[in-house]
Write a protein that binds this DNA or RNA. Structure first.
Length: 237
DNA sequence: GCCAACGTTGGC
DNA sequence: GCCAACGTTGGC
């Protein structure tokens, strides 16, 4: 499974220019994430003392359970630390079984959303940082979150010197190409609709693409997902 | 290439 | 825990 893919997830790690190690991003693991069960104190710091829950402990009944997603990747060549991060939907189609691992996400909120993903759910493949940004197609989650091996690979663009093998920070999922949209839905069109819906109400009123623009892995409500799909059959705005 | 928005870091 | 400085994202 899973050949590797290079995405950028938004994420690009904290490294950037050279890595220095530093870091620890100590906190931050949270985000919306697990509130944990129980009430024990309010979550707040979580107290994570050293034990981490094993990654999975999880699931909190209280955070909204999303079942549709949008994942960004760059379809045009761009060098990052000398490595081309290009990975568009056509690249996904090319992989064996049209399946790849969505590695390289180095942002806690995005990572946490990936950890919420369930096998069989659908995600839009969004083309970012390119001539025409927008939604190109649909993919399916075929493997739930597991350790992103690229965090330990010094030659990888998203290598993270602060992540230790016995307590990996970053996760990824496997995705499989499902289909192209009948027509590419450009960001500009989604934006116009979003603006209208903000005023008069409508499905895309609170779409994360606009309310949390920099998140590379974001949730969509079922209503949002279906609304976007309905645009396929309309003429471009 | 610019730059606004926003996440992260780290001093205090 | 606050918050200023800094770095990244990603549209334009």
């Amino acid at each position: 499974m899973a050949p590797k893919m290079r995405t950028r997830g938004t994420t690009r790690t904290l490294q950037s220019s050279n890595d220095e190690e530093t870091k620890t991003n100590a906190h931050s693991e949270d985000s919306p994430l697990e509130v944990g069960q129980a009430v024990r104190g309010k979550r707040k710091g979580s107290g994570k003392t050293g034990k981490q829950e094993s990654s999975k402990a999880k699931k909190s009944p209280e955070r909204p359970q999303y079942c549709h997603w949008l994942m960004k990747s760059e379809p045009e060549s761009r060098l990052e630390n000398g490595i081309d991060v290009k990975f568009g939907i056509e690249d996904l189609k090319t992989l064996p079984n049209q399946t790849g691992c969505w590695d390289g996400v180095r942002n806690y909120q995005a990572r946490n959303f990936m950890r919420d993903m369930k096998e069989g759910q659908h995600a839009f493949f969004y083309h970012s940082n390119c001539k025409e940004p927008g939604i190109a197609g649909v993919m399916k989650i075929v493997k739930e979150s597991y350790v992103d091996h690229t965090q330990f690979d010094k030659k990888d663009v998203h290598y993270d010197a602060s992540s230790k093998a016995d307590n990996p920070k970053w996760s990824m999922v496997d995705v499989q190409f499902e289909r192209m949209l009948k027509r590419f839905i450009p960001l500009s069109e989604l934006k116009k609709i979003h603006l209208q819906h903000k005023v008069k109400g409508g499905s895309l009123n609170g779409m994360a693409l606009f309310t949390r623009a920099r998140l590379s892995v974001q949730p969509l409500t079922t209503e949002e997902f279906e609304f976007v799909l309905s645009l396929e059959d309309n003429d471009p705005l």
